[in-house]
Amino acid sequence: MAEEVSLGRLPAVVAFGGGHGLASSLTALRRITDRLTAIVTVADDGGSSGRLRDELDCLPPGDLRMALAALCGDDESGRTWAEVLQYRFPGDGSLGGHAIGNLLIAGLWQRLGGDPVAGLDMVARLLDAKGRVLPMSAVPLQIEADVVGLDAAAPDEVSTVRGQAQVAKTMAEVRAVRLNPADPPASAQAVRAVGDADWLVLGPGSWFTSVIPHLLVPELARAIVDTGARRILTMNVQSDAETKGASAARHLELLAEHAPKLRLDVVIADRSFARDDPHLETYARSLGAELVLADVAHRDGSPRHDPLRLASAYADIMGV
């Protein structure tokens, strides 16, 4: 990697995730490389995305839209386009709650005969996006979760919660997730991007609905496991609503339970989340990874990553 950087070749980086977590990593990564691909989960079934998915039988566009917005530049044009993509129509009418970017993406898919990658590439060119956005699968997916505590009268009983929106907000403890269909086709372009990458970045994001699902698409999971690229896992700055107070080490354990063949090279954890967790380094080593502790949380104390701090951590690790 050092030789490549010295020759002026920035690393090819593939980032996985969905929603705000992926947007954070992309905002950081576009500051250190111009060879960036986002591979995005396609299981969202709530809000505007769920409505368009049901009405048009298309991939849910919301997380893809957020990734494209995160890849817009920092100049006035880039900021304007990002705001336009994210703008939602007000009110309770037929357009109420829809994001402009969702309608744009869904409309292009209809115009281009349902080719999701061609539509996303066209939006990226329109925005002058600093990277490429790809769906992880060619078909819309449903997330199912095994949970305990859903029924207060039977707190140890295992129940099933279906749908990303329901899994994300369940008050029960999520033990495991799976995809329906169980063997979905991976996006061919996504698999090729993994094979061509120098670095893969998993996380941050909602653990069960944004991070783990990529490892449940068999062909994509094999590509991640078999790649010659180095693999970084970016931990959340604290447990989220889905993991409900789980330690940082427990997050790694959950990842390993869903993808037992996965090995990592680096685990990035914010110092505040790693503090008082004596098992984190042991779990990281069990996955083959070096644990890197860094101050990557936002300075205002909110549970999110600071893009500049995260970019600095990525640059140090990648030797950029």
Results as ranks from 00 to 15, higher is better:
Val174His: 03
Arg51Cys: 03
Ala168Lys: 03
Ser48Leu: 02
Leu287Ala: 08
Asp121Leu: 13
Ala188Arg: 07
Ala315Gln: 09
Ala294Val: 01
Leu291Phe: 07
Ala168Trp: 00
Leu95Met: 11
Asn236Arg: 01
Asp146Glu: 15
Gly195Cys: 05
Phe208Ile: 12
Thr234Glu: 00
Thr282Phe: 11
Asp34Val: 00
Gly17Met: 05
Glu157Ile: 00
Leu52Asn: 08
His298Ile: 00
Val266Tyr: 06
Glu173Arg: 13
Asp198Arg: 07
Pro155Met: 10
Gly21Asp: 10
Ala315His: 03
Ile143Leu: 14
Arg285Cys: 13
Ala284Glu: 06
Met122Pro: 00
Arg79Leu: 14
Leu85Gly: 04
Gly50His: 05
Met318His: 05
Trp207Pro: 03
Gly195Val: 01
Thr209Met: 08
Leu104His: 06
Lys130Thr: 11
Leu64Ile: 03
Pro184Ile: 05
Arg275Asp: 13
Met318Cys: 13
Glu281Cys: 11
Gly93Arg: 06
Ala229His: 00
Pro278Ile: 01
Val211Pro: 11
Asp146Asn: 04
Leu64Gln: 05
Ala154Gln: 15
Ala284Leu: 07
His258Leu: 02
Ala269Lys: 02
Pro60Asp: 04
Gly119Thr: 07
Asp63His: 03
Tyr283Cys: 14
Gln142Lys: 14
Asp316Pro: 01
Ala315Asn: 06
Arg162Cys: 08
Ser6Pro: 06
Arg88Thr: 02
Thr41Leu: 09
Asp45Pro: 09
Pro155Ala: 10
Val167Arg: 11
Ile268Gln: 07
Arg9Glu: 10
Ala23Gly: 09
Ser159Gln: 08
Arg250His: 12
Asp44Gln: 04
Gly245Val: 06
Ile100Ala: 14
Leu293Cys: 09
Leu150Ala: 12
Ala168Asp: 12
Arg285Met: 14
Ala69Trp: 06
Ile143Gln: 01
Asp226Asn: 11
Glu83Ala: 15
Arg309Asn: 03
Leu179Trp: 15
Ser187Val: 00
Glu3Phe: 08
Pro303Phe: 04
Ala182Val: 08
Leu202Glu: 00
Leu108Ser: 03
Leu112Pro: 03
Ser272Asn: 09
Pro278Trp: 15
Lys169Asn: 12
Leu85Lys: 05
Asn236Trp: 03
Arg304His: 10
Leu36Met: 04
Asn102Leu: 09
His298Asn: 13
Ala193Ile: 04
Ile224His: 07
Asp57Pro: 02
Arg30Pro: 12
Gln110Gly: 09
Pro213Gln: 14
Ser49Tyr: 02
Asp57Asn: 14
Arg304Leu: 04
Ala182Lys: 11
Glu173Phe: 05
Asp240Met: 01
Val133Arg: 07
His20Ala: 13
Ala259Asn: 07
Val267Arg: 05
Arg31His: 15
Ala118Val: 02
Gln86Asn: 15
Val174Cys: 03
Gly47Ile: 08
Asp74Lys: 06
Asp316Arg: 15
Gly19Leu: 08
His305Phe: 05
Ala2Lys: 12
Leu262Lys: 05
Leu179Tyr: 12
Ala106Ser: 14
